[in-house]
């Protein structure tokens, strides 16, 4: 049996799952209790919970899809553990590749050496724990400062609301902008004919910077579809006073836009579907590092 997918590895994963769920349930119960004290209507709490669960389904499935990106090299259990606590694909891939660089290996091959696997597990963990060390020191201070500002701006509620909305809108617009014009790059090892990394006399590994993703016609179309669906649903909810549907408008708009992505892919000409501002796969630079 592959050591990367042994029952012991699964046991570790299930322990981590149990921890994450216990912490979430703890905060959920405490918050619900406080909400009751604050007099927040039961209906608001119910819709918050149900709409958050529905909203989460599609992104969670896309996270599940990223587990398999790393499964080829690391087996399915370690990526599962890592994407359950703290992790995200970009970080885990970088951490695993940086670790494998030490031996001149690549993520394209399955890791068969137990010591390399153990080193990757340590690298992924030690590189990602910083927020958990910082939070106990910074969280309270930050919350007190922001809390004081928020309460001060109560004097001018409309202005305070606008500043608060501005921060939210600023975040959302950062993501929206990236769907309109951006690209992502990834550094990978250049392999020789035998599939080994190329190392120079100074021990540096030859890396190639490649465009791995880019905004383009499809990302803009899906973005516009999501906006249009959401606006239509919002108008329908308000016009027909469908208050129960309102919390689900956002997940419905999101699913509908994702459905349109599938439709566009099969209906539009291939050159339009694949049209991106930057050609995916383009090699930008080769460097020893």
């Amino acid at each position: 049996m592959d050591f990367k997918e042994s029952p012991f590895m699964y046991a570790i994963a299930l322990f981590v799952v149990a921890f994450v769920i216990s912490q979430s349930v703890f905060f959920l119960v405490k918050s619900l209790k406080k909400a009751k004290e604050l007099g927040i209507p039961k209906e608001t709490l119910k819709t918050t919970m149900v709409s958050s669960a529905v909203f989460t389904v599609a992104p969670a499935i896309s996270i599940l899809a990223t587990v398999i990106v790393l499964a080829n090299a690391l087996g399915i259990v370690l990526p599962w553990i890592r994407l359950t606590v703290i992790g995200n694909l970009a970080y885990e891939t970088t951490a695993a590749q940086t670790a494998l660089d030490f031996w001149g290996e690549s993520l394209k091959h399955s890791v068969g050496d137990t010591q390399q696997f153990a080193t990757i597990a340590w690298a992924m963990t030690l590189g990602s724990i910083a927020p958990l060390i910082l939070l106990p020191f910074l969280c309270k201070k930050l919350q007190k400062k922001i809390g004081a500002t928020v309460n001060k701006s109560e004097k001018s509620k409309k202005f305070g609301d606008a500043i608060s909305a501005a921060a939210f809108i600023g975040i959302v617009m950062a993501f929206v902008s990236r769907e309109i014009y951006s690209y992502t790059v990834q550094k990978t090892n250049v392999l020789d004919a035998a599939g080994n990394s190329i190392v120079n006399e100074a021990g540096q590994i030859l890396k190639v910077k490649t465009i791995t993703g880019s905004a383009g016609l499809m990302s803009i179309l899906v973005l516009v579809c999501a906006i249009v669906f959401m606006l239509i649903l919002d108008i329908i909810c308000k016009k027909f006073k469908l208050t129960k549907l309102e919390p689900f408008a956002m997940p419905i708009a999101m699913f509908a836009a994702m459905g349109m992505a599938v439709l566009f892919t099969y209906v539009l000409p291939e050159n339009l579907v694949n049209h991106t501002w930057f050609e995916i796969g383009t090699e930008l630079a080769k460097i020893y590092e």
């Binding site: 499935i61 899809a65 769907e179 499809m218 990302s219 999501a226 999101m254 992505a261």
Partner: peptide, 11 residues
């Protein structure tokens, strides 16, 4: 799933 982010942030 490839376009989950524009769908999410568009909505």
């Amino acid at each position: 799933f490839e376009y989950v982010l524009p769908a999410l942030f568009g909505a």
